[in-house]
Amino acid sequence: MNHKNQWNSFFAIEQQIHYSRHMQETIKLAHSANAMHTARCHIPLRTMVAKQVKFFALKIWLFQGLVLAALCALLFQLYSINAAYGIDAFTWAKHSLPKSLCLCSVTVVICAIPLLSRPTRYKMAELEQSTYFSVRGNLLAQLLFIGTGDIGMLSVLVLLAIRLQIAGDTIFLSLIIPFLTAAASGLMLWIRTSPSFFHKAGAILCGLSALFVYKITDNSMLFLPDTAFYVWILYALICIAVLYRECKKLYCRGIFDMLLTE
């Protein structure tokens, strides 16, 4: 039984219905419904993050590279100054370099602040928040790029310290611990405070927290070198757990009102 006969028999009481006209209309509606459905297919999160490499990653890494170059130049300059005063490299590495590395690790964290504040500074936060991936997807991508860059910067600083024959535990206490402290405290502050407060005071607060922790590590290793080191390893694991928790909170809940209200 062909479709036309089937159609006509179905609508037997409506003899004036024209099969071809209604079929055309139905086909047209089906096409538009299909187009709407196709239009709503979206790219997965990993593809969106990969696309952000083109827009942001290179700029972020370039900026971090410049900061790293400045830090290395500063360290070299300090070494030269000390050498000019007759302080040998070993003495300098043992006493001054750990403090310098602590300041470098804080700088690595603080240089992420202008990068993370770009959406607020250029009034893009509101628009980004209304998109499918929202601020969460965008922030995740940026934190990923910044984190990758930070690991690169820390690696170079660690290699520099090893080259200058600093002990592994000193590198851990003067570089890694302050970095994790500043990063964890900075992220916690950033999520919980308004953008204007964080830009003015957040950098100072997370920097001070790292320097404070460094002072404690210095004193603790002086008095209880064996026990203290294991305590600081535990502390580092706690900081990593805090960082993971804060990033997860950021991703799951987003930061609705925080980015907009001052």
């Binding site: 979206h42 952000q52 827009f55 770009r118 509101e126 980004e128 998109t131 965008n138």
Partner: peptide
Amino acid sequence: YLPQEFGFYPEFTVQQYLEYIAALKGIPD
């Protein structure tokens, strides 16, 4: 959505900006 205070990153061209927003909106290439 078009906000009242419509912002943009200064380094973006018109095409780059629309590509960026398209990516955030999850639109395939």
